[in-house]
């Protein structure tokens, strides 16, 4: 194990997979000579050269489509979105083509493609740059979507995503790039897509989250224990599609309460689907209605203190948990 940043973990995953498979290449804006807008690919161009690290012009529809076409031909492109919000200019390629081609060909082809980049708010870049589109992507059968929160998860899931034979949307976070955690050094360290991770064991309620919200949930769980002696379990989904339904149900059946947290907007968010799952398959286990916390339902605001208030915070998670347990703050 090594204590490394989320950024380094991704970089290691790229290095290992580039060395393992000659068909893997990384393409995107500023990924090569500039070293990556967020330095996720720093040093890789020097190490692997023009063929494996490709600077693309600002043409997302062009190079995502290129990635799909190249993937049909057996290459394994890893396409960087400088911000995931930029995928919208390439929506037809990214979701219509990537999700449908295998199906429309009756299974005659497949698209082993990774589209990756930061998808987060909280950096005061306004509404156009702060999207978390995992719910939109997950709505398309044919696509897969993962949202890792720790360095280890980032590495293990990225390696699985690159080796996967279907299109995987890999959503990172600029705020997490500098976060450190212990990461296995095994070059075949893989985390299966669709496997949740219980980040904290507990008995009183289940906080189910993904992405950076998992960190808020863990901080909230710590505070709940310290101030109120409440043991919250924190389930990190890690993968949105496929989804580890059994891990969710197992936790809820144990704690009898579910609090869903996500940085996404509430309407048709991931929490809507999880909430449906719980009422459908764990209805009799519930001691309280399922509660949800998401970003406040508005475009991402610029004003720094207000954006902080718009996104899920530890304080709000604690408040909601206490409410569910009928405990006064």
């Amino acid at each position: 194990m090594a204590l490394i940043t989320y950024r380094q973990a991704l970089k290691d995953a790229f290095s290992e997979e580039i060395e393992r498979d000659e068909n893997v290449f990384i393409m995107g804006e500023e990924v090569a000579q500039y070293n990556g807008a967020y330095k996720v690919t720093e040093g890789l161009w020097e190490k692997y050269g023009d063929k494996r690290l490709v600077d693309a012009p600002i043409s997302e529809a062009g190079f995502i489509g290129l990635g799909i076409g190249a993937a049909m031909m057996g290459l394994r492109p890893v396409i960087e979105m400088m911000f995931f919000s930029f995928v919208y200019v390439a929506w037809d390629q990214a979701v219509n083509n990537a999700s449908s081609l295998r199906y429309m060909s009756g299974g005659l082809l497949n698209v082993p493609l990774v589209i990756r980049g930061p998808a987060n708010g909280g950096t005061n870049v306004g509404a156009t740059h702060s999207h978390t589109p995992e719910n939109l992507v997950a709505n398309f059968p044919g696509l897969k979507c993962v949202v890792p929160v720790t360095a280890a998860d980032a590495k293990g899931l990225m390696k699985s995503a690159i080796r996967d034979n279907d299109p995987v949307f890999f959503m990172e976070s600029t705020i997490l790039y500098g976060e450190e955690s212990e990461v296995p050094e095994d070059p075949d360290f893989l985390i299966p897509l669709g496997k949740a991770d219980v980040k904290r064991e507990g008995t009183d309620l289940s906080i189910i989250a993904h992405g950076r919200s998992v960190l808020m949930a863990l901080a909230a769980a710590k505070e709940l224990k310290k101030k109120h002696n409440i043991d919250a379990e924190v389930v990190d989904l890690r993968s949105i599609r496929p989804l580890d339904e059994e891990a969710i149900l197992k936790s809820v059946k144990k704690t009898n309460r579910a609090l869903l947290v996500e940085e996404n907007k509430p309407y048709c968010g991931i929490g809507s689907q999880i909430s449906h799952l719980i009422q459908r398959r764990a209805f009799d286990y519930l001691d309280a209605p399922v509660h949800r916390i998401s970003a406040v339902d508005a475009p991402a605001i610029y004003s720094p203190p207000l954006e902080k208030a718009q996104l899920p915070e530890t304080r709000v998670i604690v408040r909601e948990a206490l409410d569910m347990l009928n405990v006064k703050a």
Binding site: R102, Y103, S105, G106, G107, N110, P112, P141, G142, K144, S160, R163, D164, N165, D166, L190, I191, P192, L193, G194, K195, A196, S239, R241, P242, L243, D244, E245, E246, Q273, R280
Partner: peptide
């Protein structure tokens, strides 16, 4: 429900698990 995901059509060949279709 076939020919959507390579991993579903070729079980065992991938590091995949969990639920991928969401029909009740």
């Amino acid at each position: 429900l076939t020919d959507i995901y390579h991993s579903v059509d070729n079980p065992g060949s991938h590091t995949n698990q969990g639920k991928i279709f969401f029909n009740d």
